[in-house]
Design a protein around this nucleic acid. Structure first.
Lengths: 126, 126
DNA sequence: CTGGATCCCTTTGGATACTG
DNA sequence: CAGTATCCAAAGGGATCCAG
């Protein structure tokens, strides 16, 4: 069915798929987006995050912050005071990513009912 | 820092975050996007997918297909022949989702170098 | 051909205690 | 305050065998 040209396009699409997956892996963790949300309006401290991101454990907070920092989505600033003070703030790149993610929110809202209906149908038949 | 209005906006943002997470959970599996890609240009058979989506096991192919079907992203058509023939095809809703996901590809490409640099910096410091 | 069922390993994430 | 270290439970996913 597909011509040569189509196969080339197909290969490109597959590459796109890989990239999409890479992006998703950056933010698909259980807590990544929640943390990003909190840091997008300005610097936030560790303990603040621990409270505002409900239910997260210290370990996962640290791990997620490290990953986001490593991907250049978060800036970590240490103030050498006693007691220590550390602030996390989203980068411009992260804010831009967030905008793209809002696209997905739009999609979800537009199709909310269709999805619910599909679930309904599927579950009835199984 | 935030006024009342801002807190309201904040609450909305948090909800958005949840919705984004819901969407991501639909396609964040190891294979979901790869499968979606293959079914977006037309009906594809089970065995075709098994071959074209490299490295996937039968179990995961079945599971992922079921999830995508349940979310209304895939239509499963059974032809009551011998041997059986089943075709999977992306819905319009899925195609639309795919477009939104391409936004993320765009983001990734625009910031590819920045991300790599951040990785570099981070890894050197740790 | 299209799966379902089972077993097992790896990864992810939670709870808790400890430290500069 | 801001983590690190350790242990443990749950989920994700691969390999294999079986069935309509």
């Amino acid at each position: 069915m597909p011509e040569i040209k189509d196969l080339e396009a197909e290969a490109a699409v597959i590459n796109e798929g890989c990239t999409v997956l890479e992006v998703l892996n950056r933010v698909s963790g259980k807590w990544s987006i929640g943390i990003l949300l909190q840091t997008i309006h300005g610097p936030v401290r560790f303990t603040e995050l621990e409270r505002s991101v409900g239910g997260i454990s210290r370990r996962m907070l640290t791990l997620t912050l490290r990953n986001l920092e490593r991907d250049g989505l978060l800036i970590r600033t240490v103030y050498p005071t006693v007691p220590p003070k550390v602030e996390y703030c989203a980068t411009d790149m992260a804010r831009e990513l967030y905008s793209s993610l809002l696209e997905l929110t739009g999609w979800a809202e537009r199709h909310r009912e269709t999805i619910a209906a599909a679930r309904q149908t599927y579950d009835v038949e199984h």
